[in-house]
Amino acid sequence: MTVLDALQDTLGDEHAALYTYGVLGARTSQAATPALYDALTTGYRRHRARRDRLRVLVEEAGGVPVAAAAAYELDGPLLRVAQVQAEAVATEESSVEVLLALVAQSVGAVREWALAEAIWSATWQLELGGGPRTWPGAPELD
């Protein structure tokens, strides 16, 4: 795997994360669950900025940024608050895993950026109802 491959994988994961956050936000009541709504909004904005940065990084690495799919499969109906939280946490867990692969394949500024984003996604899981883990993003070490 090259750094360009890892960047494209991360960009593909970001397309899916943005789609997921969009669906989760649409199924969350700002009036009934303002804290969750705010957490999802912040997450959506962070992932949107991350996607935009990844497009630039892919182009700088000589690639053509992968496009988003028309839709992505979500896990279950996502009608209850707990289901929305679980899906959001799973989205961030996936982000950490993909970003750690980018950390492994990159050096310098790209690694530094990927590390910062991985730490953010890991830590944001607590805002979404998740808990701390021993090996976030590296489940084979658990």
Partner: peptide, 15 residues
């Protein structure tokens, strides 16, 4: 691979 492991340690510490 070591960088990846340390990134996971950093993420865990932050959590």
């Amino acid at each position: 691979d070591l960088a990846r492991v340390l990134a996971s340690v950093a993420a865990s510490t932050s959590q």
